[in-house]
C-alpha cells in the first residue's frame, strides 16, 4: 500500500454520494469508534488572482470519523457534508482496504464509485462542450 493509493481511495470515498456508498456497503463488519462521527467546518481558501496568496473564501461542512476493526486495523474518514453514516462507512472502508479484504472492497466499492464519478464528470463536460462557440467570419466584400 502506498500513500498515494490511500490518499486516492479516502478521497474517492469522501466525494462519493452518501446514498450510493450506503447501497454498496449495506452491512458493516464489527468495529468500534476511536472517534465517533463529528460534524464540523473546514475553511475553504482561494488564491488572490487565481494564482497568488491565499484568502479565506468561506467554510464547508465536514464530518470526520475514526474506527477500529476487531483485528485492530484503524480507518479514518473526513467527508464533505453532515452525513454521519457516510463518514462511518468511509472510515470502515478505509480500514478494510488495509486488510486482506482489500481486493474485494476495491472491486465492490471503489471500482463502481470511480466509474460513476468519471461518468458524472464526463456527462457535465460533454454538455459544456456542446455549448462551446464555433466562430466563423464572413468574408468582407473589399477583400475579393
Amino acid at each position: 500500500m502506498t500513500t498515494m493509493d490511500r490518499k486516492a481511495w479516502i478521497g474517492l470515498l469522501a466525494r462519493a454520494p452518501a446514498a450510493r456508498l450506503a447501497e454498496l456497503m449495506p452491512t458493516l463488519p464489527p468495529h468500534s469508534f476511536l472517534r465517533p462521527p463529528e460534524i464540523g467546518a473546514v475553511m475553504v481558501r482561494g488564491r488572490i488572482g487565481g494564482t497568488g496568496s491565499a484568502f479565506n473564501l468561506g467554510e464547508m461542512t465536514v464530518t470526520r470519523c475514526s474506527i477500529r476493526l476487531d483485528d485492530g486495523t484503524l480507518g479514518h474518514a473526513w467527508v464533505q457534508g453532515r452525513d454521519k453514516g457516510h463518514a462511518t462507512r468511509a472510515a470502515v472502508a478505509d480500514a478494510l482496504l488495509q486488510t486482506n479484504d482489500s481486493t474485494r472492497v476495491k472491486a465492490e466499492v471503489l471500482s463502481p464509485l470511480a466509474t460513476e464519478a468519471a461518468e458524472h464528470r464526463n456527462a457535465r463536460a460533454s454538455k459544456a462542450a456542446a455549448t462551446k462557440v464555433e466562430f466563423f467570419t464572413l468574408q468582407r466584400g473589399e477583400d475579393q
Binding site: G40, R45, G46, A54, N56, L57, E59, R121
Partner: peptide, 23 residues
C-alpha cells in the same frame, strides 16, 4: 448555525485552473 460548528481545519487554496468547467 455556522457558529455552532467546530473548526476542523483549513483547506489548501483551491486550484481554479484545474476546475471542471461548466462555463
Amino acid at each position: 448555525y455556522r457558529t455552532t460548528l467546530p473548526r476542523l481545519g483549513g483547506s489548501w487554496p483551491v486550484d481554479t485552473a484545474e476546475m471542471a468547467i461548466d462555463r
